[in-house]
Simulated scan of single mutants.
Amino acid sequence: MISGCDTVVTFDRHPRGMLAEAPPRLATTQLMRERLAALAVREIVLLEFDSNMRQMPPDAFASQILARRLQADSVRVGSNFRFGKDGAGRPRDLGGHGFAVEVQPLVEQGGTPISSSTIRSLVSAGEVERARQMLGCPHEVALISPANPALDAGIRLVEDGHAAPATGRYNCLVATAVGGWVPRQVSFAGGVAEIAGFADGPPLPDHALAVQLLECID
């Protein structure tokens, strides 16, 4: 831990993934680190969400993890923050463990609270422009090459576990193999993406590439 610096604490996986299928990811760990670094966050702590963490009571999480392990001076959480076994802990339960607690109201946009669940719903409905407004940047999808080499080079698959948009054609920015981004139209359907003009302009990565969704065309 870096003493006296702002630190973001999260889990290495979605807690719901221990009980059922985890919701689609909105960002890879690397992308999350890059975006937080752009906000001047100096340290990110990824807690392993294993069976012990899942069974940990709220009081133990506050005292053992936040106070003792992370040596927190102050903790800021949203008003809907839940923690500990079965999500039984509430923000008020963080008090009395030797650190200050600040509860932040939920940020809203157009009367709708901004949350990962809301953003996932917007992406899955193809409303990527509204999702971009809530995220503060375009939603980024990781694409990988299919196992079948006979398929067209412009055909890619959405990486497992990532939030894919609804079936449709989108204006996007595609990461190149030499750095930077190029505009392309990308069609999505059932986890399959087809990149128009794949061979045009700067070379694109052969295997994995990133696509930022700007707007749905049709």
Rank of each mutant, 00 (worst) to 15 (best):
M134R: 15
L122N: 05
E127W: 03
T118K: 12
G161W: 05
H139Y: 07
R130P: 01
A164S: 12
S115K: 03
P146K: 02
V174K: 03
C137F: 15
R132H: 04
S145P: 02
G126I: 09
G136R: 12
A142R: 13
P146L: 01
H162P: 01
T167P: 03
C172P: 02
N171M: 10
T176F: 00
P138Q: 02
S124N: 10
V128P: 07
A153S: 14
A147G: 12
E127P: 00
A142E: 13
A164I: 01
N148G: 02
I114S: 04
A166D: 15
L173H: 08
L143T: 10
L143Q: 07
G179A: 04
S124C: 11
G110A: 12
E159P: 05
S121C: 08
I144M: 14
A142Y: 02
Y170M: 08
H139L: 06
A125G: 08
V141Q: 06
S116T: 11
C137L: 11
V178F: 00
R156K: 15
H139C: 07
T118S: 09
R156V: 05
R130A: 11
E129F: 01
T112R: 13
M134Q: 12
S124L: 14
E127L: 09
G168E: 13
P149V: 09
G110Q: 13
I144P: 08
A153T: 10
N171V: 09
T118L: 13
T176H: 02
V158Q: 06
D152G: 12
I114V: 15
H139Q: 10
R132T: 09
L135I: 03
T167V: 06
A153G: 04
G111S: 10
G179W: 00
R169T: 15
G168H: 03
G168Q: 08
R130S: 09
C137A: 13
L143H: 08
V128F: 07
R156H: 11
R132A: 04
G179C: 02
T167M: 05
A177G: 09
V128W: 08
A142I: 10
S115A: 06
S121H: 15
R120M: 11
H139P: 13
P113K: 04
V123F: 10
V178R: 10
G168L: 08
N171L: 14
S121Q: 15
V158E: 07
S121P: 00
T167N: 13
L143W: 00
L122A: 09
A142M: 12
M134P: 06
A177H: 01
L122V: 05
A175K: 05
S124Y: 09
V178H: 04
M134T: 02
R132M: 07
G161Q: 07
S115Y: 13
A125M: 12
C172F: 00
R169Y: 11
P165E: 10
V178C: 08
A147E: 11
I155Q: 14
T118V: 15
R156G: 13
L135N: 06
L157K: 03
N148Y: 00
L135W: 12
G136I: 09
L143P: 11
T176R: 03
A142D: 10
R132L: 01
S117P: 07
G111W: 02
S145K: 13
